[in-house]
Computed example of a mutant assay.
Amino acid sequence: MNTRSNPKDLGAGILYLAFGAAAIWLAHGNPIGTADDMGPSYFPVMMGLVLIVVGLISTVRSFLVEGEPIGAIALKPLAFVVGSTCLFAWAVPRLGAPIALLLLLFASAAASRQFRLNALTVAVLGGLVAAAVLIFIRGLGIPMPLLGTYFDG
Score class of each variant (00 low, 15 high):
44 P>G: 02
75 L>W: 15
112 S>K: 10
118 N>L: 07
128 L>K: 06
2 N>Q: 13
52 I>L: 01
96 G>S: 02
92 V>D: 12
97 A>K: 00
20 G>A: 03
69 P>V: 08
102 L>V: 13
94 R>T: 08
40 P>M: 11
83 G>F: 06
72 A>N: 12
35 A>N: 02
149 T>H: 01
58 S>R: 12
46 M>K: 01
145 P>N: 11
38 M>G: 05
14 I>Q: 03
64 L>H: 10
70 I>N: 05
132 A>K: 04
6 N>S: 09
92 V>N: 07
90 W>N: 01
38 M>D: 06
72 A>F: 15
4 R>W: 15
104 L>P: 12
132 A>P: 08
111 A>V: 08
82 V>Q: 06
152 D>S: 07
16 Y>Q: 13
16 Y>K: 09
103 L>K: 06
43 F>Y: 14
96 G>M: 03
108 S>D: 03
90 W>I: 03
119 A>F: 14
51 L>T: 00
146 L>R: 06
5 S>I: 12
62 S>K: 00
89 A>D: 01
67 G>R: 08
92 V>E: 11
10 L>M: 14
61 R>C: 04
92 V>G: 04
79 A>R: 10
147 L>R: 13
74 A>C: 11
44 P>H: 00
18 A>M: 08
93 P>A: 03
145 P>Y: 09
50 V>H: 02
145 P>C: 10
106 F>K: 00
37 D>N: 09
145 P>L: 11
52 I>Y: 03
62 S>C: 01
38 M>K: 09
111 A>N: 04
86 C>W: 13
140 L>F: 13
88 F>P: 10
54 V>K: 02
152 D>V: 02
40 P>C: 08
125 L>F: 07
31 P>A: 04
126 G>P: 09
2 N>V: 13
113 R>E: 15
96 G>Q: 06
3 T>I: 10
77 P>I: 13
76 K>V: 14
86 C>E: 05
108 S>C: 01
68 E>S: 12
83 G>I: 04
116 R>T: 12
1 M>Y: 04
18 A>H: 05
125 L>H: 05
108 S>L: 03
133 V>C: 09
134 L>F: 15
101 L>Y: 14
50 V>P: 06
80 F>H: 09
148 G>E: 05
3 T>M: 10
76 K>P: 06
22 A>R: 13
14 I>K: 00
34 T>V: 02
153 G>N: 10
106 F>Q: 03
96 G>H: 00
81 V>L: 06
48 G>N: 03
138 R>A: 14
112 S>Q: 10
46 M>V: 11
78 L>D: 00
49 L>H: 06
23 A>H: 10
9 D>Q: 08
148 G>T: 04
96 G>P: 01
127 G>K: 11
30 N>A: 15
109 A>G: 00
12 A>V: 11
20 G>I: 04
66 E>C: 13
64 L>V: 10
13 G>Q: 12
53 V>F: 14
96 G>V: 00
18 A>N: 05
97 A>P: 00
149 T>S: 08
107 A>T: 11
45 V>I: 15
81 V>G: 03
94 R>I: 08
52 I>P: 00
149 T>V: 11
103 L>S: 08
33 G>S: 01
102 L>C: 15
132 A>T: 11
134 L>I: 15
114 Q>M: 10
53 V>S: 10
22 A>C: 10
86 C>L: 12
77 P>F: 12
109 A>S: 11
31 P>D: 05
99 I>C: 05
98 P>N: 05
65 V>Q: 12
35 A>Q: 04
1 M>Q: 04
41 S>P: 04
63 F>R: 06
11 G>L: 14
